[in-house]
Design a protein around this nucleic acid. Sequence first.
DNA 1: AATGAATGAGCGTTCATTCAT
DNA 2: GATGAATGAACGCTCATTCAT
Lengths: 209, 209, 209, 209
Amino acid sequence: MEDINKLGRKERERLQRKQEIQKSAARLFAEKGFTNATLEDIATSSEFGIGTIYNYFQNKEEIFRSIIESILDSNLEIISATESTTTGLVDFLKAYTRSVFYYFVDKRDEVLLLVSYFTGIGEKPVHLGQDCFREKNCQIEGVLRKRIKGGIESREIRNINPEYFLYIYHTLVFPYVTTQLKRKVLNSSNIDEHVNFVLDILFNGILIK
Amino acid sequence: MEDINKLGRKERERLQRKQEIQKSAARLFAEKGFTNATLEDIATSSEFGIGTIYNYFQNKEEIFRSIIESILDSNLEIISATESTTTGLVDFLKAYTRSVFYYFVDKRDEVLLLVSYFTGIGEKPVHLGQDCFREKNCQIEGVLRKRIKGGIESREIRNINPEYFLYIYHTLVFPYVTTQLKRKVLNSSNIDEHVNFVLDILFNGILIK
Amino acid sequence: MEDINKLGRKERERLQRKQEIQKSAARLFAEKGFTNATLEDIATSSEFGIGTIYNYFQNKEEIFRSIIESILDSNLEIISATESTTTGLVDFLKAYTRSVFYYFVDKRDEVLLLVSYFTGIGEKPVHLGQDCFREKNCQIEGVLRKRIKGGIESREIRNINPEYFLYIYHTLVFPYVTTQLKRKVLNSSNIDEHVNFVLDILFNGILIK
Amino acid sequence: MEDINKLGRKERERLQRKQEIQKSAARLFAEKGFTNATLEDIATSSEFGIGTIYNYFQNKEEIFRSIIESILDSNLEIISATESTTTGLVDFLKAYTRSVFYYFVDKRDEVLLLVSYFTGIGEKPVHLGQDCFREKNCQIEGVLRKRIKGGIESREIRNINPEYFLYIYHTLVFPYVTTQLKRKVLNSSNIDEHVNFVLDILFNGILIK
DNA sequence: AATGAATGAGCGTTCATTCAT
DNA sequence: GATGAATGAACGCTCATTCAT
């Protein structure tokens, strides 16, 4: 990833303009879908000319790809940071889920795209192979997988199928956040409430013991 | 819903052809997204001429709408049947989840569309208002809501926020099924295993007591 | 032309059905134009099936052609009848103009098509050459031309250019009738008033002598 | 109307290109009819790409509408100029008719469309209401109507029905010009001859006094 | 003879991309 | 670097015509 601090003024400005375009594009892709959001929409919304956008991105697909990549990078950073600052699985899940919720509220549109792309739901660039981000995705899943196995071995959690749980966790957290964001039920003022609720169900289940 | 048994031969054949088109369209919509699936794709795939499709549906959007409607109808039938054959919440959730899993394995593509449409993720017909199926959706949610509240009152489950749980349940089960179907991890031979796993986590949580 | 009196019952019924289709088609062609009037429109309006129409006409263009032909035949009959029952040009023009007005009020739609086709205004079948009815058209013009020249020789009218007058007469009478029919100013109850007015201007001009 | 002299170079060039498209379109509409003239025809004929046309006009119908509007504007200018430079009805009709003939020889195709549209003959854009140009049309008719009444009052012409005459005048002059243009009988070298002929008949009639 | 479901060529229109300015 | 007019491939949709019943 480009480190903004090491760049000269020109490169810094260029990066800023690139991010403005990504931000506008993400909102429009999330709102209308990849195909229905036109480059004219993006140009108008980001207050650049259509031609200018092609100075920053090779084509429309590249805009989409770069948004996904950047959110994946962020997620990787979050999970790496959490990995190195927690020990037990429970602590890890608490910290990671909380970070994900907070981060996602801030990156609503980008996350919608990510979820859309990885659940294989909805429209996406025709030529963007599903394995385009395999490596980064595997890294993220790898950390989770390792932690889950560790949690079972250290008897923090029950002896459940780690693979199944991996998907339960991700298909629970990501769609929950996006759906609640869409419904405007979840917002920056009640994140903790939602995080705690989800973790409570996940940890303790719904039954009375 | 049209009852196939009461129709004459001609009407029956017409309905069958309509369903063939819907089936082909659902697969293509799920695969490529609504906008990227062309009518020529649908025509080729369903082995009709392009024009023929317009004898059965007013336009492309109407094909999409009718698929969603039909899967919602099925879901409504499932939940109604389950509602009348179970008493406690736990029994209800067991039966409903199992039915949903079994039904969805059979209707993979249609369910992908449904999830896409209701999570607001991904592309959809521009003009299909989000409230187009509000009534049916409310009926389904209504039954769940009533049952959840009943389960809390009868002390089957802990005193959790019913609204939050409603969305946890739906954002857990539907995306889990669709994701695992996409990954071909879930198939008709191991449904029960997955159903039991999801219900186990939901009921008991992951922690060791 | 087919003489209805000489035909058997079957042929008579066939001719009647053909004319019903022509009548419906003429109305729709006049209303929407040739291209915009669909065969489904014509079928619905004439209360036949689409396929049935092809038992009576080779194709859409043939329906149009047959309507023009039939109105031209009528006009030819009118002009021939008038030709043999009048002597002077003035009498001829009075009788012919009156007949044309009366006939056209009855055949509003067909005449609109005729005028459209012969003024070269508006849409028509692409492949229907402009010379398709040259012969019949020449016959009609021929009678008029002969009479006009006769009128000049016998000093009934001034020595004007017969060719120019021929077109003044036709471009005056036909568009006047059609325009006034469209505006619903002209109808069966005030035909004589309009006929007399047009003839008065044509014969005497507008100036005070 | 846009005044070409006040515009910058870019605007002037844009207007020129717009007019080239209109010119090509008018010819094709007049030749084949609105529906049968395709946008590919218009693009080829005006030597632009199809897409380019949509930078100048919203859609096909808008091209048609703009042509009619522009010819109506010209007619309005002609009649206004004539109105202010003549006093008697006879002088007015002489000047106006001459101007119309001269102008129409130059704008053959556009006038064919105008006549087609206002006689209600032939094909036109389905959605272009008949009253779309009512105001401009009324202005033109209004001037004529006023002048005719004035001519009767000042005893320049006989006491004829002004409304009937209004339509005789227009249904005489416009279709006469268009028909003779189509037949290539009328051209820029013999306009005066035709104008004088039409006016002679209109003023004096055909009878010998 | 009567029908209308099936067909696909052809239309109007959109929009990602290019390139001259 | 910034621009947006120009482009044409590709889309959704229509409808004259055919043909099995």
